[in-house]
Design a protein around this nucleic acid. Structure first.
Lengths: 223, 223
DNA sequence: ATTACTAAATGAATGACGTTCATTTACTAG
DNA sequence: CTAGTAAATGAACGTCATTCATTTAGTAAT
């Protein structure tokens, strides 16, 4: 992957101490995340990031290629908050429950990243890969057939992302409004769920997560 | 829901035949969907829609409040393509499998709608409500406890949306690239999945869907 | 027919954005 | 002291969605 060597063989710049400059990746990423935390993703504009750093918007482009890339930096930091430690200490089923809950909780606050992540190559993020390694190790130790590990992980992740999106919905999202009347089964189910007093998104997440894990364990062929 | 009657009791305009005009909701929605089908969601701009209709962009705003609303119109049409007919004819498990597969397939081509839908009140769309009615009826006939129906539906939907997003990802999304080497379990799992020759997203969807349905049925308390 | 009313279309303008680029600034190495 | 260079600047650009004053053209009432 190396370019052809310098023709003269002359020694090139070696060290290159940081060339002054107010900005670097870490600073930009942190400032951006701070903006997001305080004002949500609508507050994340290149101008706002620049302003927060006391710099002009165009200056950012010496360090980041695009806003997309900036969001990938944020995603890495956010992803780092997902707790996958349980795989080293707990049986697979419980580790999965903890991991998934932590994963979802974090992305509820970062829903706009989801369409990005779902499509993002994992290669750029060592910490994310490390997470996958821990999860995969958990499955392996539980005796899973190798070829079923990735599909199982991806399935759980898909459910997590969908659930995180769902959790940002308004509470009355299912209110049939003026169209009530000819949908008796649905209305009955709705009333019964409401009567439980549970938050609907939370309820669905727990129900779905338990079901998926139960089902994966039940359907799995061990090695 | 009627406003107070005209004070004088005088008869007001009755009919109101369509007031001429080139545009209406149906036309705009169809033209928009056509644009999306041919050029994806990046091709969906108000200018492009207007151009397709031979009209100026501002004219659209006499009929639609915002681009968001336009996308809701599209969503309704798209949603109408989801096949929930199996609930009337098949046992719950098979009906769910068919419904979910149809649902996902459709939204793979409309991923940008997903963040919108997940958050959208269902009240505005009679056809979508009808779909929920059919699904809810399926659960009811299978003897499910009422309070568990909504969470189960939402859980499956969350998985569907997440899977649809996932399906738009590049094939090599999990390639560890330069960070390979210290993630043996993950790499092993990856290689094994690849060796099956299955498409990873498809594999995950089938695995996850089966697992979730198996798990829901296993965990369900019947009425 | 003339008049009044009104839905609907126009085209110019606005305001966010992300992004580019020629130029300047200021540090570092030889 | 002289290049060389990373990084910052500020003025543009282009793309959008959206607004608004104005015009156009049907319809209903006198």
């Amino acid at each position: 992957m190396q370019e052809s060597a310098t023709p003269g063989g002359a020694p090139r710049r070696r060290v290159g101490r940081p060339r002054s400059g107010v900005l670097d990746r870490e600073l930009i990423a942190r400032a951006s995340l701070k903006l997001v935390t305080s004002g949500g993703y609508t507050a994340l504009t290149m101008s706002a990031v620049a302003k927060a750093l006391g710099v002009s918007p165009s200056a950012l482009y010496n360090h980041v290629e695009s806003k997309q890339e900036l969001m990938q930096w944020i995603q890495e930091i956010v992803m780092d908050g997902v707790d996958s430690s349980a795989f080293a200490t707990h049986p697979l089923e419980q580790a999965l429950l903890r991991w998934a809950a932590s994963y979802r909780d974090i992305f509820v606050d970062h829903a706009p990243l989801i369409p990005l992540i779902a499509v993002l190559p994992v290669s750029g993020s060592p910490r994310t890969l490390q997470m996958y390694e821990e999860v995969a190790a958990g499955f392996t130790r539980a005796g899973w057939k190798q070829s079923q590990i990735i599909p199982s992980i991806v399935a759980i992740e898909s459910f997590i992302f969908g659930s995180a999106l769902d959790a940002t919905a308004p509470l009355d999202i299912f209110d049939p409004g003026a169209n009530a009347g000819n949908i008796p089964h649905f209305e009955g189910a709705l009333a019964a769920q409401r009567a439980t007093g549970n938050n609907s998104a939370e309820d669905a997440f727990i129900t779905g997560l338990r079901a998926m894990i139960t089902g994966l364990l039940a359907n799995a062929e061990l090695d």
